[in-house]
Computed example of a mutant assay.
Amino acid sequence: MSSTMFRIGGDLNVRRLGFGAMRLPTERGPDREAALAVARRAADLGVTLIDTAHMYGWGANEELLAEALHPYPEGLHVTTKVGVARSSSPAGWKHDARPDTLRAQVDHALRRLRVERIELIQLHRIDPAVPLADQLGALRELRAEGKVGRIGLSEVTVAELAQAREIVDVASVQNRYSLLDREHEPVLAACEAAGIAFLPWRPVAGAASGAAAEIAAVAAELDATPAQVSLAWLLARSPVILPIPGTARIGHLEENLAAADLHLPPAHRARLDSLST
């Protein structure tokens, strides 16, 4: 298997550098037209893994991707996340992974994405008010019904991942992780040991802000951008890492995807390895 590819769950073959759709505007108008163009350009450039969620516009992001890409090119998979609901709280959302809610959100996602099966569904957050066995049991039933292909988690600890794996086969974990944010290093290690895909969100956090002078220096030496260096470091960090950088600009998308071809010499990688916040 090429280092540029990964089989999620052992059988879903995708390119390791994907695209996160969270930032795409969904309101009608020029910004939406630009968002459609970004999604289409991602597919044109060979992206095979696009990440969205029920929470992103409460379904509007899923509808946008379907408008842009359906019928989907062969090999392109749109993954989505369920388990949170709209709320009047300051955050604007709340945990809700009750089985009925998960079923409804999956059914809505199938309709919005215009598919009969979602190849990877991820539990956006573990709901502390619902037994984990009930949450994952509902997703397992949906898998048995053929509505989803594989089950993943998001924002989990090592202990939660271990507990979940006693209930279902876990194909992926989506946690916050980047060159400058390695809080979830133990979770990455657990995923690598088990062959579970690790999808870092905010994969270039801090890299484009100029806060990391060393990243900027490495980028200048390699004729690359700080974001490209950060993504290349992630790809080199572990074979199970599948970064999903997001953007609403075609130029930035093309820059991010070019990171797949950036080689980090050992000396440069060692300098990056030593960075942390």
Results as ranks from 00 to 15, higher is better:
S88Y: 02
R271F: 13
P203E: 06
P245I: 07
E27G: 07
Q174R: 05
L242I: 14
S209D: 15
R269A: 14
F19Y: 14
E74C: 11
I121W: 00
G20I: 06
V78I: 15
H77R: 08
L272Y: 01
E33K: 07
F19W: 04
F6W: 07
A205W: 06
A21I: 08
G75F: 03
L180V: 11
A232T: 02
P226C: 11
G57M: 01
A97H: 08
E27F: 06
S274L: 13
V148T: 12
A91S: 14
G10K: 05
L12N: 10
H70T: 10
A232F: 05
S276M: 09
A220H: 11
Q174L: 12
L123M: 13
R202N: 15
I196F: 04
L139Q: 08
A194E: 13
S154L: 08
L136S: 03
A248V: 07
L188F: 05
Y72F: 14
P266E: 09
A133M: 06
V14E: 03
L110I: 11
P203T: 06
G246H: 07
L69Q: 02
A91C: 09
W93H: 09
L231M: 06
V173D: 07
E214S: 09
W58G: 03
S3M: 13
L76C: 04
P243A: 05
E254G: 12
I151Q: 00
L120T: 00
A259M: 00
H263A: 15
G20K: 03
S230R: 05
I215E: 02
I167L: 15
I167V: 14
L188P: 09
F6K: 03
L199T: 15
T52Y: 00
A68W: 01
V14P: 12
L153N: 02
R103I: 12
T48A: 02
K94W: 01
E119C: 08
H252C: 11
A43S: 11
A190W: 00
R125S: 13
V78Q: 01
W201F: 15
L262N: 01
A227L: 12
A190P: 07
A68F: 02
E155G: 06
A39N: 05
K147P: 14
V84L: 14
P128S: 10
L69R: 01
E185W: 01
A216F: 03
G137L: 10
R143Q: 15
L222M: 12
L102T: 07
A68P: 04
I118L: 15
R176Y: 03
D169M: 02
L234M: 08
I50R: 00
D11I: 05
A66C: 04
H268W: 08
G9V: 10
T52L: 00
S88F: 06
F19M: 08
K81F: 10
A232L: 03
G46Q: 01
V148F: 00
D31M: 10
L180M: 12
E116T: 11
P266A: 09
I196Q: 05
R98H: 15
L179M: 14
L231A: 03
L234I: 04
W233N: 02
L139P: 12
L65A: 09
V204I: 15
A227Q: 14
S172W: 00
R98L: 13
